[in-house]
Design a protein around this nucleic acid. Structure first.
Ligand SMILES: [Zn+2]
Ligand SMILES: [Zn+2]
Ligand SMILES: [Zn+2]
Ligand SMILES: [Zn+2]
Lengths: 141, 141
DNA sequence: GTCGACCGTGAACCACGGTGCAGGGTCAAG
DNA sequence: CTTGACCCTGCACCGTGGTTCACGGTCGAC
């Protein structure tokens, strides 16, 4: 508004280079390049000098990758899901839904297992030294 | 009872060699030797020819290792827990209890996270093609 | 005693998820 | 124009959890 000539178009939301993206998303620069090699993250472009340029959205994308990993997805799975969600126009949401349904069943199983162990271990801690033969194995197997 | 001279002592419950143990516990022979290198599983002895001899209990032990792995424990953790449960006499059950308590907190966190994702993904599947920008990322991040 | 199935060793190799490094170019402030 | 921070590439390396291989010894049945 003060200088119409200076800022004609909307601010391009300054593209990030590797360092800033790494700091903003909490991973190492080497990890960003690794993710790129793995087909998980592609820069929007390159500067004249060859510097990678990422959109601010990439921060979300990287955080998504990390979060999904924490939750037990492999990078291969993350890549597949991201590839689907990257599809332009004709969204293969049925595919996503199917994948997601599969994952739901897995998650249910995993949660049930963990709850079982949790219960067994909690009981072990409560009741104290019950050790006829092998307390831990009995609790988990 | 038919021939008291032939079977004097109680049947020694035939020690297993690698092949039978592997088949009984559902892992590869190479995995058994790998577990031995990692200090998770030691044969009770060796035959004159150098064959490993395992007690039938080893089947339980190997299955325990696999189960614990499935549940997200690393082999290092499994080794520590097994080492504690292997302690003869003076059982350091306090240590076990402490380890187990730590693991309980982790499990709770993990279960909560997974339940969160489960809920988000289930909603996504129910409501169908809601794709303003990126359905999957929103569901998980 | 000979045969095939089984077992031993050490060492190399694999996938996964990264990290580190050398050697060199880029960019912005001064 | 120089300086220093930053970035590029390729390649080697790491820990974890195993698998595969070459070469050789053992075991039980015949
Ligand atoms: Zn690329
Ligand atoms: Zn027991
Ligand atoms: Zn050993
Ligand atoms: Zn979105």
């Amino acid at each position: 508004m003060a200088d119409p000539a200076a800022q004609r178009t909307a601010p391009p939301a300054s593209p990030l280079t590797t360092g800033p993206l790494a700091r903003a998303s909490g991973v190492a620069v080497s990890t960003l390049r690794f993710y790129e090699r793995q087909g998980l993250l592609e820069p929007d472009g390159r500067s004249d000098g060859g510097y990678r340029q990422y959109s601010p959205d990439s921060v979300r994308r990287v955080r998504f990758i990390r979060r999904a990993q924490e939750l037990g997805f492999t990078l291969r799975e993350v890549r597949e899901v991201l590839a689907l969600s990257d599809e332009p126009g004709r969204i293969v949401l049925d595919d996503v839904a199917e994948q997601v349904s599969d994952k739901l069943a897995e998650l249910d199983q995993r949660i049930a297992d963990l709850r079982g162990v949790r219960a067994a271990l909690a009981l072990l801690v409560e009741t104290g030294p019950v050790h006829p033969t092998c307390p831990v194995i009995d609790a988990i197997v």
